[in-house]
């Protein structure tokens, strides 16, 4: 690419915008992932059960709760 060419600034600005937006998304994703993982580890350390007990004492199931593989 000829960086001295006419309109080169628009090209550089486009790549910079894309880089900043994608970089921001990646950073935000990693921050959120690490914070969720830390909270999960904290709850596991506290011995929190993975499913709540229903009124009758049986485990109340949720569609997304962990199931054995």
């Amino acid at each position: 690419m000829d960086f001295a060419a006419r309109h080169a600034g628009f090209v550089i600005a486009s790549y910079a915008v894309a880089f900043v937006l994608v970089g921001g998304l990646i950073t935000a994703t990693l921050i959120r992932y690490r914070s969720v993982r830390r909270r999960l580890e904290e709850l596991e350390r506290l011995g929190a059960p993975r499913r709540r007990k229903a009124e009758d004492g049986s485990a109340a199931r949720d569609r997304t709760e962990e199931q054995p593989a």
């Binding site: 994608v22 998304l25 990646i26 994703t29 990693l30 959120r32 992932y33 969720v36 993982r37 909270r39 999960l40 709850l43 596991e44 506290l46 929190a48 059960p49 993975r50 499913r51 709540r52 007990k53 949720d62 997304t64 709760e65 962990e66």
Partner: peptide, 29 residues
């Protein structure tokens, strides 16, 4: 790149739902 990000965000979502369940279970307990 989009597929890699969506996969990681899906993992985050599954784990955050697990966190929510554990927090609710803890409150219930």
């Amino acid at each position: 790149m989009a597929a890699a990000l969506v996969l990681l965000l899906m993992r985050t979502e599954v784990l955050s739902r697990r966190v929510r369940q554990m927090e609710m279970a803890q409150v219930g307990r």
